[in-house]
């Protein structure tokens, strides 16, 4: 279909006496939505932390757009267009929803070290910030401090903030975790809308979300890749059924 935009070889992370991620070769094709699934403790979030350089890998390399990013700092990875979200909703609680999005938008000014200038210079981003809030259904909450938003709305705000950077590739860590049904549908609709021109790698527990959205799935267990393919292939894989769906095959497979 196309070139891999993100590629790891032998990615390994050892904590003392414990291998969280073990020789993972992951290849995400440009323009696809790729899911990373697996039982709790399989190393999904550690993988995310490695890919975005929040953790240094013990071994292995990471290439993004053909460039070796293994040695980069997290902020610099973000600047290359590989932007992550967090499992626990990561908003700036005391800033308003509008300010949250604006903090991301003002990144395009380069560094914001101009402490002598009034923040009214950021007002030119208000229109775009409101547009982004509108896309995730938060327009009427623009002036509300993010910490006071309901959980589902915080997650939506986080996605709006991530989108504000207009990243080439998004890493979404359980975007629908803990959400009510209506909110899940809204996020699914949002993700399928924003995929245009982007690549998305997501950790997701809700398999119906994965089935509906993702082109390709990588299954991790105990830090290793167990299987890879589209949903139909992976969900028929006996190893996957045993390791991942085994205990809850009945309800999870078609939840």
């Amino acid at each position: 279909m196309s070139e891999p935009i993100l590629q790891t070889t032998g990615l390994t992370k050892e904590f003392r006496g414990f291998v969280a991620v073990n020789g993972v070769d992951l290849s995400v094709d440009s323009g696809t939505i790729h899911a990373l699934i697996g039982p709790n403790g399989a190393g999904k979030t550690t993988c995310f932390n490695l890919l975005t350089k929040f953790l240094p890998p013990t071994r292995g390399t990471i290439r993004f757009k053909g460039r070796d990013i293994t040695g980069l700092k997290p902020a610099d990875v973000a600047r290359l267009g590989l932007v992550r979200s967090f499992q626990i909703s990561a908003v700036f609680a005391h800033l308003t929803a509008l300010q949250n999005v604006r903090v991301a938008l003002q990144r395009e000014r380069g560094g914001s070290f101009d402490f002598w200038r009034s923040d009214t210079v950021l007002d030119r981003y208000n229109g775009r910030a409101l547009d982004l809030l509108d896309q995730v259904g938060l327009h009427e909450f623009a002036d509300v401090p993010a910490g006071q938003l309901a959980y589902g709305r915080k997650r939506a705000l986080e996605i709006a903030t991530t989108l504000a950077l207009d990243p080439e590739m998004l890493l979404l860590d359980e975007p629908t975790a803990g959400m009510a049904h209506a909110d899940v549908d809204r996020i699914v609709a949002l993700v399928s809308r924003i995929r245009q021109g982007r690549t998305i790698l997501m950790v997701e527990h809700n398999l119906s979300v994965v089935e509906g959205l993702c082109d390709r799935i990588t299954v991790l267990t105990r830090g290793r890749v167990l299987a890879e393919g589209d949903y139909a292939t992976v969900s028929r894989n006996p190893d996957v059924i045993a390791a991942y769906l085994g205990s809850e095959a009945g309800d999870a497979a078609h939840a």
Partner: peptide, 19 residues
């Protein structure tokens, strides 16, 4: 200032500001 807003973002959630 624009700088101050980034500072407050760091205070609120440093990993997010990095990301």
């Amino acid at each position: 200032s624009p700088f101050g807003l980034v500072l407050q973002a760091i205070r609120e959630n440093e990993p997010r500001a990095v990301s």
